[in-house]
Amino acid sequence: MERKIEQLRSRKQQIEVRVKERERKERTRRLIQIGAVFEKWWDVQKPEEAEWFIKRLETQGLDPDKMKDAIRKTRRMPTGQETAATDSQG
């Protein structure tokens, strides 16, 4: 019985390790994709340039928090309603 308990604990730990590794890989992939968009559209190649870009948006009157909220709202909408939401904000 003790052996079975230990096997189950070991199995649980292995599963947790795999889940964390998968989450880490997904996050890494997402960050790379986001960086690629910045590089493609705004020729941002360094973290300092990305920070400068965001600060520049703030000086132009664009509030990053409002932009984040707008992005989060589009994530919750069914497909097709995103353009209507961004058109009405804009």
Rank of each mutant, 00 (worst) to 15 (best):
Q14P: 01
R72I: 03
L8W: 06
R11I: 04
Q81A: 10
L57T: 12
P47V: 01
T83W: 11
E23S: 10
Q13H: 14
T79W: 08
R72A: 09
K12D: 07
E21H: 15
V17T: 15
Q7P: 01
I15F: 04
R11S: 11
E6V: 12
M67R: 05
P64N: 01
W52C: 02
E23L: 13
E6P: 02
R76M: 11
W41S: 12
R24I: 04
D63Y: 06
G90Q: 08
D65Q: 08
A36E: 13
L8D: 07
V44W: 03
R27P: 08
K66L: 11
R18F: 07
E21P: 04
E26A: 10
P64F: 02
T59W: 12
Q13D: 15
L8K: 12
E82C: 02
K20F: 00
G61M: 04
R24H: 11
P78M: 05
K66W: 13
Q45N: 12
Q14Y: 06
E21F: 04
Q45A: 04
P64C: 00
I34Q: 08
I15V: 05
F53W: 02
A85W: 10
E39T: 13
E16K: 09
R3I: 05
T79N: 05
E6Q: 05
T79A: 14
K40Y: 02
E51T: 08
R24T: 15
K20S: 02
S88C: 06
V44A: 01
T74R: 05
Q33A: 09
M77A: 11
R27I: 07
E16Q: 14
R24C: 03
R22M: 15
R72E: 14
I32S: 14
L31D: 03
E48K: 07
D43H: 15
R29A: 07
K68Y: 04
V19N: 00
Q81G: 13
I54C: 01
K55A: 09
A84G: 11
E48H: 05
D69N: 14
R24L: 05
R75C: 13
S10R: 11
W52F: 15
E51C: 10
R18C: 09
